[in-house]
């Protein structure tokens, strides 16, 4: 995205420009609306939501829904709030991201700088694995996790996320290392540097940006996953997304919209923070995931 095209000499009049700005603003409102609704209503009492206007600011601010969502709300059978699930998600995400990123880096290194016969096929097979509908692996995965005695555990989920994240992490690093000058590697080999030394001393130090992109991508994907969490986890390992869904869709008792909204924001917070702090890398990851090859 260079700034070179800033001087597109399109002829636009004042009215056209006003129209353009208003369209852009309308869409900004459209995208912000659900976030606004969640935020505003998570600070209202339940009565105020039921009787009042969903788009209005709270008349009485209350943090009670947040406290409830975090520590008291009934999820499943236990009134634990979302806190234990938040911790489950964290405990799952951190190792899954680290392992899949490391493996992706070393895979990308092999696939670009130590190419062997059939490396294209290997990469193709890994790449296709990014796109499979996970429904196709659910049944055997449940069996294997049972056999490995990992059913319902966080370790099991970490394994699942590492395996199905490998395709993407490998893709990211492969594309990045592809542009890295091979002459440097060759020179290092002649100087006697081995496989791992070249990786550690030459490639890794210049991999900062792609590591950030990969970590953000993996973090977002694993944190936001619902299908695997819903299929393979039990109470001790259930991630945030599953707990939030249980909270919102539980059919018993009063629907506490304000608590649901507070819970939704809690579930969204980690990825939102990552996005706000490093949006540039986030977008780059999305693009790298989209524009293949």
């Amino acid at each position: 995205m260079s700034a070179a095209s800033k001087d597109t000499a399109l002829r636009t009049g004042v009215i056209a420009r006003a129209l353009i700005y208003s369209i852009l603003l309308v869409f900004a409102v459209f995208y912000l609306l659900p976030l606004f609704v969640m935020l505003v209503n998570s600070l209202k009492t339940l009565d105020e939501i039921r009787q009042g206007n969903m788009l209005a600011f709270p008349e009485v601010f209350t943090f009670e829904p947040w406290i409830q969502a975090w520590g008291e709300a009934q999820i499943g059978v236990e009134p634990t709030g979302l806190k234990p699930y938040f911790i489950n998600s964290l405990v799952m995400v951190v190792p899954a991201v680290i392992i899949s990123t490391l493996l992706g880096a070393i895979n990308g290194y092999v696939l670009t700088k130590w190419q062997f016969r059939g490396h294209r096929v290997v990469f193709g097979l890994m790449l296709f694995s990014c796109f499979i509908p996970f429904q196709i692996v659910l049944i055997p995965m449940a069996r294997i996790l049972g056999i490995l005695d990992l059913a319902g555990t966080t370790s099991g989920l970490v394994l699942v996320h590492v395996v199905y994240g490998l395709g993407f992490t490998t893709l990211f690093f492969r594309n990045y290392y592809d542009a890295f000058p091979t002459e440097l590697i060759r020179a290092a080999t002649i100087d006697g540097a081995g496989f791992f030394r070249i990786f550690r001393r030459i490639l890794l130090p210049s991999s900062g940006p792609i590591i950030v992109v990969t970590v953000i991508w993996q973090f977002t994907n694993v944190w936001n996953d619902f299908l695997f969490g819903a299929s393979f986890a039990d109470f001790d390992s259930q991630p945030m997304t599953v707990a939030l869904n249980n909270l919102v869709s539980s059919s018993t008792g009063v629907k506490e919209y304000n608590v649901h909204f507070a819970g939704a924001i809690l579930a969204a917070l980690p990825t939102l923070i990552v996005y706000v702090v490093s949006g540039r890398y986030f977008v780059r990851g999305l693009m790298a995931g989209a524009v293949k090859g």
């Binding site: 852009l24 869409f27 900004a28 995208y31 912000l32 609306l33 659900p34 976030l35 609704v37 969640m38 209503n41 969903m54 977002t220 944190w223 936001n224 619902f226 997304t241 939030l244 869904n245 919102v248 919209y257 649901h260 909204f261 819970g263 939704a264 924001i265 579930a267 969204a268 990825t271 939102l272 990552v274 996005y275 706000v276 949006g279 986030f282 977008v283 999305l286």
Partner: peptide
């Protein structure tokens, strides 16, 4: 504007679903 258009992509579909369900 750009980050405003893009931020929904960072959210879980469960969060999106919850927000729209009640809205």
């Amino acid at each position: 504007l750009r980050p405003i258009y893009l931020y929904p992509m960072a959210l879980s579909f469960i969060v999106t679903g919850t927000a729209w369900k009640w809205f």
